[in-house]
């Protein structure tokens, strides 16, 4: 009986504590860090088309596609495209990229009105905010 009452007291003590719930869409997440690994973003101007990111990608979410964009260094004109539906945000592509042109941004709100999860280079090079504006 003593133990039961002790448990009841512990529980009732919590009545006077503040709820820890964060009402996410209205309130911002208080601990959201700068290091957060969100959607992959590509800098088209510095990409040299070395395909390392496509090789290291564990899920083959990152794959190379042909894309007409002239930046002087990428003479084969192949750029990474990322299937966001398969991406696990492991950060290996960011780690291996020799020019730092592919990196993980802070964005994580990836809901769109279309179902196209395969981000081709032009889409990949824009931030989510820009894409939303574009929609």
């Amino acid at each position: 009986m003593k133990g039961i009452i002790k448990g009841l007291i512990t529980v009732t003590k919590h009545m006077f504590r503040k709820p820890v719930t964060v009402q996410y869409p209205e309130e911002p997440i208080p601990w959201h860090t700068k290091r957060f690994r969100g959607r992959v973003i590509l800098n088209l101007d510095s990409c040299i088309g070395c395909t390392l990111c496509a090789q290291i990608c564990p899920n083959h979410a990152d794959h190379m596609v042909h894309y007409e964009y002239e930046n002087g260094k990428n003479w084969r004109k192949i750029y990474p495209a990322v299937d966001i539906g398969v991406c696990t945000y492991c950060g290996l592509c960011q780690e291996i990229c020799p020019t730092g042109s592919i990196r993980l941004s802070n964005e994580f709100e990836l809901a769109h009105f279309d179902r196209d999860m395969d981000y081709l280079p032009d889409r990949l090079s824009r931030t989510e905010t820009e894409l939303k504006y574009h929609d």
Binding site: W31, T33, R35, F36, R37, T88, Y89, C90, G91, L92, L104
Partner: peptide
């Protein structure tokens, strides 16, 4: 988990 997110940038699958 918040401590881990601070370190690695992910909440569950840290790598």
């Amino acid at each position: 988990i918040q401590l881990f997110e601070m370190l690695s940038g992910a909440r569950l699958t840290y790598n």
